[in-house]
Each structure stands twice: as structure tokens, then as C-alpha cells.
């Protein structure tokens, strides 16, 4: 009996291999039509464009002293426009406010830095929405750790905390994990709420989480992030690992703070207040 079982496994194995091998050969045949297809040994098939901006760890300094409400709004509008972020604000839906999608948005000092309120700061200043907040692209991002499908990941090459929308299953663990509320969930189909679609950037679908991507698509073609461009110089973008970079020089000279530093996520976005 033992014997016959073993014999069965052997025969079964070989025969399945037999049928299989035949078919796999057929398969390979089709493939060989392009013997040196993607991934073949002819060399890298993908590359970064020559003009792409590269860094080991992208970071941003926001000089709030230079910002006013208008600039902040402009930055947000520009960002949301090119990334096809839906706008539900004019919408009748009772839960519209909960459905809001935000990549970057201005907020008040007390909201951005809870617990760090300056005691005698003028009331109007502490409640003025001039602090632009966005994804901090943390060096130690909790959202990445909780993502079950690796849809959220930190790019090893430049430290950007990215989202692969294709993979997102909408479980929203990342939203629970992010201490900054930087992520939004598409409760509804976003497409109807996009005023003029930017054809160069995809939209999202219902059931997907989204957030700021540090304009990875613009960096790849040698551009600055959209908000930086729109900030009139108040936002400085650069490589935090490069001691010679502008951003490092600025951080060396000025006292800059980060949001919720005690959480140990090491944000890559700094604020000069």
C-alpha cells in the first residue's frame, strides 16, 4: 500500500509534468518571438530620463513667514488640478465634508502643531490658515508598515512615500496609521467631481486611498513639485542627504520644526515659523 502510494505520486508527478512540459514549450515558443524582450540580457530596458531630478531623500522646507492665505490657496488649487483631485465642495451630499479629498491644504498653526502653541502669539496669527500641510513623506512611515498589499511603499531610491493605486484595496489601515491625516479615501466615484481633467495624470476610483506624492511624476521629467512652483519661493525642495543642497543650507541656518516629532516618524517636511 505504502509502495503503491509512492508510486502513484511519482507517476502522477511525471505525467503532469509531461502534459505541462509540452504546453510550456508551446508557451515559450510564443515568447521566443521576441527573444530579447523586456528583461532579456540585452541590457536595461527601462531607465530614468536624463532630465529627471534625483535625490537620495527628498525633503521640503516651508517658510511660513513668506506665506499668505492667497498663496496657500493657489498652491492647493494647482496641486489638485494637475493631480485630478475631485472637489465635492459645491455638492449637496450631506456627508460632503467627510468625502473631501486633500493632497495639500492650508491650516491653522494650532492644528498643524498641536501642543506647540506659542503662548503669546497674536490670536489672529495662530488662527490664520497659512500653514500648508501635506504628506510628510516620513523617513519612518507608519502607513507603509500597515499596508497589506504594499500599495503604499517608500521608494528606496529617493525616500518618497508612494501609492500604487492599482494595488490599493481600500482597507484604510494607512489612514488609521497616519498621525497627520494626510490621506483621503474615495467614498464616491471621484470622476464627476473633477472639473477639468488633466489627461496626463490618472484619476482614482471609488474605494481607493490617495495622498500627495511629492509630484514624483514631475520630478521624473525634471520639474519641481507643483506647490513649490506656485509658492513664490516660500517652499524649498531638495535632497536632505546632500549637505551641499540649498535645503540643507537653509536648515543649517534657520530653526525649523516638524509636525509631531515625538512620534518618531521623522517627517521630511520642515516648517520655519
Amino acid at each position: 500500500m505504502e509502495n503503491s502510494r509512492r508510486r502513484f505520486l511519482k507517476t502522477a508527478g511525471f505525467s503532469i509534468l509531461g502534459v505541462g512540459a509540452g504546453s510550456i514549450l508551446v508557451g515559450l515558443e510564443t515568447r521566443s518571438a521576441r527573444a530579447a524582450g523586456p528583461g532579456s540580457d540585452k541590457g536595461p530596458v527601462f531607465a530614468k530620463a536624463e532630465e529627471a531630478r534625483e535625490a537620495r531623500r527628498w525633503g521640503m522646507v516651508i517658510d511660513t513667514r513668506e506665506l499668505d492665505e492667497q498663496t496657500c490657496r493657489k498652491m492647493q488649487e494647482e496641486c489638485h488640478r494637475i493631480h485630478n483631485v475631485p472637489d465635492f465642495s459645491g455638492d449637496e451630499h450631506p456627508r460632503s465634508s467627510k468625502h473631501e479629498i486633500k493632497w495639500i491644504w492650508p491650516t491653522e498653526f494650532t492644528h498643524a502643531f498641536p501642543g506647540q502653541e506659542a503662548e503669546f502669539l497674536a490670536e489672529k496669527l495662530s488662527h490664520k490658515p497659512i500653514i500648508p500641510v501635506l504628506c510628510n513623506h516620513c523617513d519612518n512611515p507608519p502607513c507603509v508598515q500597515v499596508c497589506p498589499t504594499k500599495a503604499t511603499f517608500k521608494r528606496e531610491s529617493d525616500g518618497i512615500v508612494m501609492m500604487d493605486f492599482h494595488r490599493c484595496i481600500g482597507c484604510r489601515f494607512c489612514m488609521a496609521a497616519c498621525p497627520f491625516g494626510s490621506r483621503s479615501f474615495n467614498f464616491r466615484d471621484p470622476r464627476p467631481a473633477i472639473k477639468d481633467e488633466n489627461p496626463e495624470f490618472p484619476t482614482r476610483t471609488k474605494g481607493v486611498v490617495e495622498k500627495c506624492n511629492f509630484c514624483a511624476e514631475r520630478l521624473a521629467v525634471g520639474k519641481q513639485p507643483a506647490c513649490v512652483e506656485a509658492s513664490g519661493g516660500a517652499l524649498i525642495f531638495g535632497d536632505l542627504e546632500d549637505p551641499e543642497s540649498d535645503i540643507r543650507k537653509l536648515l543649517a541656518d534657520e530653526y525649523a520644526i516638524r509636525r509631531k516629532p515625538n512620534l518618531g516618524t521623522f517627517p521630511s517636511v520642515f516648517y520655519i515659523v
Partner: peptide
């Protein structure tokens, strides 16, 4: 999306 490589070199 994942590697940030945006240049495809064809056969």
C-alpha cells in the same frame, strides 16, 4: 510607479 523609471527603451 514603483521604480520611478519613466523611459522605455524598445527593442
Amino acid at each position: 510607479v514603483r521604480d520611478g523609471k519613466r523611459l522605455y527603451m524598445a527593442e
